[in-house]
Nucleic acid binder design. Structure first.
Length: 363
DNA sequence: AAGGATACCAACCGCCTGTAC
DNA sequence: CGTACAGGCGGTTGGTATCCT
């Protein structure tokens, strides 16, 4: 290997931690325009204070248009288990069998669900009193399921908590998924999360697009032009007063040139607040679908912008009814007969499977 | 109700591999 | 062939929501 590598970036000069929606926007916008031929140079070119690796990871795992979020189906989980038996911890190889799934996600699912499930299974099949031989490690370096072990205490906890499924990202779980842990959890009302971190929000935002494979490393405007059609939302060339005129606002998002824009976006309480409610995200997402579908575009933009005004404190008349109506308005943006393949909202809000995907042309 | 324990997952870290020079 | 660089991969960590006592 030689003399080792220099760090990919100066850790003191880059931002770390959860991605803000503004950063996501910036990354998406940049890739939309320029592709990602050089991750290392990308942050600088895009005006992001992030490590190139971090950008890549963010894009690969959350922002790319074909990423599939939500629950793993029983079939998927079974397949993961089988593949893991043959491939070991080759998460990327395993992930290659699941279009839209990321190695990171599969790895997490394995570590948090499947490994434990298998451990429990092993425990059930093994004669009692045999536990002491194992549980030396939870090492993920084990290459087959038969070697997977876990601490006894954790196993017990796992048995008790196997069905726990109310965390923030659970709200994104696919309605049609009916894996055992969901099934076992159906008696438990799904709680609305009190808050969503910016990271969660941005992850959710990333769900707005989903598609078959697209090579965004080669930007093609006609392919991805609608990826980020935030018409008017963040056009700070318009004053706040002009927010009321969405139909006059262009779809252009300032990228390299307008740093004030991004700074403002970063500073917006709406975006940075940890109190962004799920509805916000949904409306945000669906609003963009509205653009994609070109359905009542102007009208819906107005509604969405009113919603934003509320969130930004530009409209003092905010009340729950309005919020609710805006949400409903946003929901109507999605054609009833449209099929999505990723969850947009929690099961209790939107019955039935919603499957996306319209923004990318199928290849 | 409070606080500790646990589950979960996004993001980071560092090593490995491939490639260009 | 050696070096440097970039991308990719797998393991680990930190933050937060939820559960439990």
């Amino acid at each position: 290997m030689g003399k080792g590598r220099a760090p990919c970036c100066d850790k003191t000069q880059v931002k770390r931690g959860p991605w803000s929606p503004a950063e996501d926007l910036r990354l998406i916008t940049f890739i939309q325009k320029h592709g990602h031929e050089n991750w290392r140079a990308l942050p600088k070119q895009a005006g992001l204070l992030r490590c190139g690796k971090s950008c890549r990871l963010r894009w690969i795992n959350y922002l790319r248009p074909d990423v599939k979020r939500g629950n793993f189906s029983k079939e998927e989980e079974d397949t993961i288990i089988k593949l893991h038996q043959t491939l070991g911890n080759k998460w990327s190889k395993i992930a290659s069998h699941f279009p839209g799934r990321t190695d990171n996600e599969i790895k997490n699912v394995w570590n948090t669900h499947l490994k434990k499930r298998l451990t429990l299974k092993d425990d059930d099949e093994r004669p009692k009193g045999d536990e002491s031989k194992e549980s030396s490690s939870t090492s993920s370096s084990s290459s087959t399921s038969s070697t997977i072990v876990s601490s006894g205490k954790r196993n017990l906890e796992m048995q008790k908590n196997q069905g726990s499924s109310t965390k923030k990202t659970r709200i994104l779980e696919n309605v049609k998924d009916s894996s055992p842990r969901e099934a076992s959890n159906q008696h438990r009302p799904t709680k609305k999360p009190k808050e969503l971190s910016s990271s969660s929000i941005s992850s959710n935002n990333s769900n707005i697009t989903n598609s078959s494979q697209i090579d965004v490393s080669k930007p093609e405007d006609d392919q991805i032009g609608s990826l980020l059609n935030f018409r008017g939302l963040y056009d700070v060339h318009n004053s706040s007063e002009e927010v009321n005129k969405p139909e006059e606002i262009t779809a252009e998002i300032p990228l390299e040139s307008d740093y004030d824009f991004w700074n403002m976006l970063d500073s917006l309480s709406y975006l940075q607040s940890n109190e962004i409610q799920l509805e916000n995200v949904e409306a945000f997402q669906i609003s963009k679908f509205g653009d994609a579908y070109n359905i009542g575009e102007v009208d819906q933009n107005k509604k969405w912008l009113r919603y934003l005004e509320n969130e930004l404190g530009l409209d003092v008349t905010k009340d729950e009814n309005q919020e609710s109506s805006l949400k409903n308005a946003a929901e109507t943006l999605v054609p009833e007969n449209f099929q999505y393949n990723m969850p947009l909202k929690p099961a209790e809000v939107l019955p039935g499977t919603i499957e996306i995907f319209p923004l990318w042309p199928s290849l």
